[in-house]
Design a protein around this nucleic acid. Structure first.
Lengths: 362, 362
DNA sequence: TTGTATGCGTTATCAA
DNA sequence: TTGATAACGCATACAA
């Protein structure tokens, strides 16, 4: 099962013909790559010296070090990161557990994390957290013993499923997770403020017949955006109406909403979708049906994904990549022993971006 | 340095007060999480039995297993994945080494890989390969001993920098890498065919004054697209001219190209950009300057990133996510001992997608 | 069916 | 400055 089909690695010259002396589990000719012991033997020194030399310790004679480096080089020795982690109790990797994310959200957040992780010399271990709590637990547990810290995003309302299997032995930063768990620093988007900003903008434009395309209600972001929007409209313009249509954050449900509006011939002069993708789907469908945007109907979204700019979609900008990057930074601070000031939630305020789907540009 | 600032994990009840007996490197009260030995001691059994029980071996009495599971549960025991990998010489993780990718390419490829990896119960270990060969080597070496296989993308022409530090001990699949290395299966895009399809399309439309916005010349994709395009045009319409402007795959260089065309008042009726992002930048700049697309100038790109569809950009579609997913599948086949038929390069043919930037839709 | 002992590849402690 | 050796946490021959 194991040890077949591999393309073996030979860094230096001689093939290790004496590997049997070290023993091999398979018993067959598994041509292993050079280990620290091979280097030690070849250099006529102890493994301890090799380890010290290769890790830049001072207490090793330059001459000795040179000999070791030469041998290591010749054998193509590469330290076994797994063994190193086990011995040092440090992996220089951080685990990232994400749910099934819609569209560009996934990309942007991973991108931001990757940017910062690379800068800090950390590796990112990715794992999906499915809605299924069992799988979520598995994903979480698979991280134990491989990473120094955890970045967990789970905007679903139900946290009971996985909090139980959350390793408490390693630091973790939570993203967009409802009811921030005690002792865990977290990152959050001020969805209410963003939605309120959109509301104010639409109301200022004189719109009063508003439709909100909501995201799934078990999603914390979706819920906060809806509530924040409804509250703001109620306060700013009691005479306005907000009709809520349901979506799932995907483009086609935005299209569905548009079709409902068209078919029912609803009286609508503004639409606020809980995210950009639904806004985009709605926008396209409406324009295809001959509606003028923004003249007849103004449309706004949330997130400011890259596409939004090209379609001139008014939206509440969330710098997703930055949030990911910030999460990595906070996590490493904790990992490196930074004590105080790391707890609590770091709230990111969305920024209203006004574009052509709500105001005419000329 | 280590062991401070952590939020410790206690799964069951009692705090291990006897950890000192097991020894600890720090000497201080590092409250470690339960290990297999804790479970064994608590259950009054050997670690071997615990291991067998928890890994579903048959040779363990149901009664014994139950006792073990109960204890493990109570102590909140989670196997240490790192130690497990070391012992089993298998990590269930695959390493992904990517260069600094432009725009959505990164997202899409990681997305496809993640999709398949999740399905196969594998974790993805991400690492950036910078242009700097030294860093590239580091990224590669850091993977040694943590992953069972490697997915490497490096479209840069210069491979000397990192091939040397490529672990040959583990299977690897190369993506978009020039001069496919011997013994290494690889994935490639048929850039020439895609570019030729675009060429034919533009020529069929009667366009003869063509500009090509090229990508960086040290990039294999960029080079192949340029050469394939020039060759095709030369063959299909010897009377046509192709002027090459240089870009770097980013949107703004597409814009730059447009400005050059405008400022020089070049006679141009078609533009083929080496990727969508440059095409988009060019498109926006041209339209902003009052040019009619496609009437005055037809524009085509390459890749079919999500944005392309919304802007109705004609392009050569590459299913990036699928390539990533396929790479994972091929890799696992090799990892699982699938012998033949895994070598060689798997070529993905782009598909011509005709949209509104080259033909009027009504 | 269960226990004992060894090895995985590395780092760190302590003595030389 | 160097070497012998015990961890790290787990899996597995082999013996009982």
């Amino acid at each position: 099962m194991f040890g077949t089909g591999y393309i073996f690695w030979r860094g230096g010259d001689g093939i290790r013909e004496e590997f049997g002396a070290l023993g091999t589990r398979e018993g067959v000719g598994f041509m292993a790559e050079a280990t620290i012991r091979d280097v030690a033997r070849e250099a006529q020194l102890s493994v301890a010296s090799v380890s010290r030399a290769l890790n830049g310790h001072k207490s090793v004679r330059p001459e000795t070090r040179a000999r070791i480096v030469a041998v290591a080089d010749r054998l193509g020795y590469v330290p076994h990161a797994g063994a190193r982690s086990l011995s040092m109790a440090r992996s220089n990797a951080i685990g990232v557990v994400l749910p099934d994310l819609h569209g560009e959200f996934f990309s942007e957040i991973v991108r931001g994390m990757d940017r910062e992780a690379t800068r800090l010399g950390l590796q990112l271990l990715l794992s999906n957290m499915h809605a299924d709590p069992v799988q979520a637990g598995q994903a979480l547990r698979a991280m134990h013993g491989r990473v120094d810290g955890l970045l967990i995003m789970c905007p679903q309302m139900r946290t009971e499923g996985w909090v139980g299997s959350m390793p408490r032995g390693i630091p973790a930063v939570l993203l967009n997770t409802p009811e921030p768990m005690m002792d865990h620093p977290s990152m959050a988007i001020d969805n209410r403020a963003g939605a309120a900003a959109i509301a104010r903008h639409l109301i200022d434009l004189g719109r009063r017949h508003i439709v909100h395309i909501a995201g799934p209600d078990h999603n914390i972001d979706a819920r906060e955006r809806r509530e924040g929007f409804e509250d703001a409209v109620r306060k700013l313009a009691p005479d306005a109406t907000v009709t809520v249509l349901s979506g799932d954050f995907n483009e086609d449900t935005g299209e569905d909403a548009a079709n409902i509006i068209l078919k029912e011939n609803m009286k609508v002069d503004a639409i606020f979708a809980a995210n950009d993708m639904m806004a985009v789907g709605c926008l396209q469908a409406l324009r295809a049906a001959g509606k003028r945007v923004p003249e007849d109907i103004a449309i706004a979204g949330f997130d400011d994904v890259p596409i939004a700019r090209y379609l001139a979609l008014t939206t509440a900008r969330v710098n997703i990549a930055d949030i990911g990057a910030r999460a990595v930074i906070r996590l490493t601070q904790i990992m490196n022993g930074g004590e105080g000031a790391n707890d609590g939630v770091e709230v990111h305020e969305p920024e209203l971006v006004i574009r052509g789907t709500t105001v005419t540009t000329h």
